[in-house]
Structure formats: C-alpha cells, structure tokens
Design a protein around this nucleic acid. Structure first.
Lengths: 258, 258
DNA sequence: GCCTGATCTTGACCTCGATCAAACCCGAAA
DNA sequence: TTTCGGGTTTGATCGAGGTCAAGATCAGGC
C-alpha cells in the first residue's frame, strides 16, 4: 500500500543521515529500512535501561537523547548526549543482549527502531557491512577514550571551552552558534561538573566577550581565546617566580590566563 | 623445521589464553598463529604511539603494558593497564590505521605481534570470528563506559577500594592478594589521583587492618569493608542532623564511614 | 658492601570546585 | 492575570585532594 511505502522512504532518509549507515548502498539502505519501525517519544521517556535485556537498537532521527549510567552507589553520570544521526544501543547485539547504559529522551524525539536479531542476520549475510560496523564500534571506543582524557585532564573552564568548540565544529569560525538541547544541567553532568559551576563559567566567558548567550543558544565570538584556554598546560604559566614572594594576589576570575 | 614448529606452538598457547581469541577452534588458532611473531620488549619500551599510523596489534603473553593518552595540553593519563591475556591496538584495523593511545611496557614483557592487514583478511574470510571480534569491541566499549562512571562518581578511597576488589576478583575471598606490576605511580594515574593521595589512602586502609602490604603485593584482609566503602553513597550517612549544630568535629581520617 | 637515582612516604599548605541556601526567571496551567 | 515548579543564577562557605618540599626506602650497578 502507498502509506507503507511512504513510511519506508522516510526511514531510508533518516538512516542515510546516520553515521552507522554511511557507506551503505541505496539498495542496502532500503533492505535495512525494511526491518525498522519509526517511534516517537516524549521528553523524559526511557528507551532502555542499563543492565536490562533488550532486543532493539536505535537511530535518532530528531530530538535529543542522553545516555546515563547509575553507579552502584546511586550517583548518576551522563555518558553521552546523542544528536540526530547518532545511534544508540548498538552493543546490545553483541553483549549478552544487555544495555550498558540507560537511554532517556531529553526532548521530544523521533527514532528508528532496529530489531537486534534481524539486523544481526542482515549483517552476517553482508561481510562488508559487518566491517563497517566494526569501524563504527572502533570509533565509539576512540570517543570514550577521548572522553576519559578530557574528564581527567581538564579543569572546569577547559571542559566548557572544549565542549563549546567541539559542538561548534567546522573549525568554529568566529560566529557559529551552539544549540543546547534539553536543560543545561545535562551538559554539566556530561562534563562532570555541577550546574552552578557551569553557570559561573559561562558568565565568565560572557563577560570576556568570548561568547554571547540567548534563548538556550550560545554564539561563539572568539574561538581563538577558547582554544587557548583548552590548550594551556593547567594553571597557566604565571607564577613560578620566587615561590611565595608576593603577598597572595586576590583571585577574582576562574581563569588564570595571562 | 623443528624450531619453527616449536615457536608456533608457543604462540598458539599464548593466543589460547587471550580473551580476543576465546571461542576459536584449535584449527583457527593455529591458522591465526601462523600470521604472528613473538616479540620481547624491555621496560619503558614503546610499542606504538597515539595518533601515529601502524599495522600491527598485539596480545600480551606476559609482563605488563600501559595504554596512555597525552592531552593537547601535555597532561598524560593512563587509560588502561593491560595484563597477560589482554590485547592492545585492536582498533588499528578499523580506524584509519591509527592508534588512539600510546602503549608502553612497564615491565619486561613478551608479546604476540599480529599484522593488521593479514589478520583483517583472516577475519573477513571467517564471518563467525568477525562476530567474535565485534563482541570483543563491545566489551571494550562497556569497559570504557564503566571506567568513566568510576572516575567521575567515586572519590579517592572509593577508587582505590574498587581497584583492589576488581583485581582480587573471584569474589575477593578474604585472603587474595593483588600483584602490582610496575611502579605504583601508574596505578595512581589510572585512577586519576596523585601518587601522594594513593599512598595516604593505602596507609589508611592498612591502619584499619583491611589490607596488608609487602613487596609490592597487597593482601586483602577484609573485602567486606572495602565493598562497603565503594557502595556508600558518598560522604557517608552521618551528619544531616541539625545543620551546623556541633562545633565542627576534627577530621583525622580520609574516610567518613560511621 | 656502598653509591646513585628512582620511587614512596609524610607533612604543611592552598585551591578548585562542591555544597548549601536563597533569590530569580520563565513557561505552562489555572 | 496569578500561580506554580523546574531550571538558572548568585553568594558564602567548606573540604577533598592537589601541590610543594623534605625525608625515607628501595634497586641496581660498581
């Protein structure tokens, strides 16, 4: 019937934009799309839960989803914010059918649901696409490694600056803007800082005319300065003079650039 | 010739112990081993470097290797300590032939070197083993996610306790010991704390008779207490009484258990 | 054995960011 | 319009852990 064909077209269009499916031929895309179904969810809705079994993975068509992990001691940590074109739950196909994280929509979202079993069979029959999947998994590993590096080596302003630059990619040309899907708290949690600290840092950046903020949209005015913050070795090159010679200068700013 | 056959046997034996090769049949193991070569390295020797191209992956037969990442700002972070049976550099087969981390031996070590190109061909010809590889990559992702959780949600004593318990696995039965390969500094760096803090934490644990230390070998006396430290929500359940009613108790211990 | 250089320990101090608490803002419901 | 509730901002304070510096301890090499 006509309607079904139309749905399928839209699914193909969504998959085409997903990094998980780059490199797929038109034919392969259509074959994959035939397995899938669309699904709309409201803000706050949970797609799957950490440690629970499941049998579907997703591609995010539009909206925003957070992947979180609740630690044994009850503390929650955002692992990733997924944007349109991203995928979630891929590993459920390989790891004892359990999800390593919890996925929650932080905005009304549309997703493509892919049944794990059928997609696995689909891949098994197509070695070349299996290889693509491995590339994708490797990319994932690299991303998590990079994240560990950022979380452990950067201080709060560096985290925020790096985050902004990463979002405004395309070399962050002097006027790009960064959309923030969902409440700012989620970003703070992703960077593993408190909302209060994020707020203060943003204020600092704004006062220095490095960014402007309006309506949950941040515009980058001075990417160079932000980059400098990120790449400075830590509490910047000042000091290292004659130990505690001077009588302790008052600190009025979060940043220690000179 | 005899000698070559013997070398091959030893490689097979090493691979058999590697998680990357579990599930391989004897035949498949031998075929894989035929591609490989042994290699011994000294302490401090670098196997491959972050961001540089390369074309081999490794299985660690004995010794210890650290995987590190140097951040843009020069700070170094240990991502993983690899033990015998572990593998390193798997992703080089998929990610533009570049390594995401630097691998350095922290003890004299023996490795099996696997040429990336040939092993890729080997896998492509064996879909079932490709699938095993995907499982392995997924496991890797899960491990990194878990690590992010630990790094961000735990404080110093929790990190150390969790580390000890993880190493003394087999449910850490009251007397298991933990070997530490390489200098203790590496462990501190892995947990993203300073060596000084690690030292103090270990002293604390020792004073409480939870562990004993000798000759770079730690024995766990009281796994239950360690587990309790890990799973306590944060600065433990004390306080929360009548705000600052009491005149600020002196803190003499790193831990806040009651 | 005795040096010599790494690694580990201990103490004193200070800083960054967490925490607590109180306004403030703003969109949705009434 | 007012009310209500989640999110954000701001200020004040505190403490875990980082930093610096000085010893102690250990491991090879001679």
């Amino acid at each position: 019937m006509k309607e079904k064909a139309d749905t399928n077209k839209r699914i193909v269009a969504s998959l085409k934009r997903a990094s998980l499916f780059t490199g797929y031929s038109e034919l392969e895309l259509r074959a994959a799309a035939r397995l899938c179904t669309r699904r709309a969810v409201g803000r706050g809705e949970v797609l799957f839960r950490q440690d629970l079994p499941g049998d579907e993975l997703f591609v995010l068509a539009c909206g925003a989803v957070k992947l979180t992990r609740r630690s044994h001691a009850g503390r929650q940590q955002v692992i990733q914010l997924v944007h349109p074109g991203g995928s979630l739950g891929e590993t459920v196909m390989f790891c004892r059918r359990r999800y390593p994280v919890t996925a929650t929509a932080i905005e009304p979202s549309e997703l493509i649901s892919i049944p794990a079993g059928e997609f696995a069979a689909f891949l098994r029959a197509r070695p070349k696409l299996s290889w693509r999947m491995m590339e994708e998994l490797s990319r994932h590993i690299a991303a998590r490694i990079h994240q560990i590096e950022d979380l452990t080596t950067q201080n709060a302003p560096q985290k925020v600056a790096a985050f902004l630059l990463a979002r405004a990619d395309g070399r962050g040309a002097k006027g790009t803007t960064v959309q923030i899907g969902g409440p700012r708290t989620e970003i703070a949690n992703l960077l593993s800082i408190r909302p209060e600290t994020l707020s203060r840092t943003i204020r600092e950046f704004r006062q220095r005319r490095w960014i402007t903020v309006e309506r949950g949209e941040i515009m980058i005015l001075d990417p160079e300065s932000l980059r400098r913050v990120v790449s400075v070795p830590r509490t910047a090159g000042a000091a290292r003079v004659s130990s505690s010679a001077r009588p302790r200068v008052a600190r009025d700013s979060l940043l220690v650039i000179e």
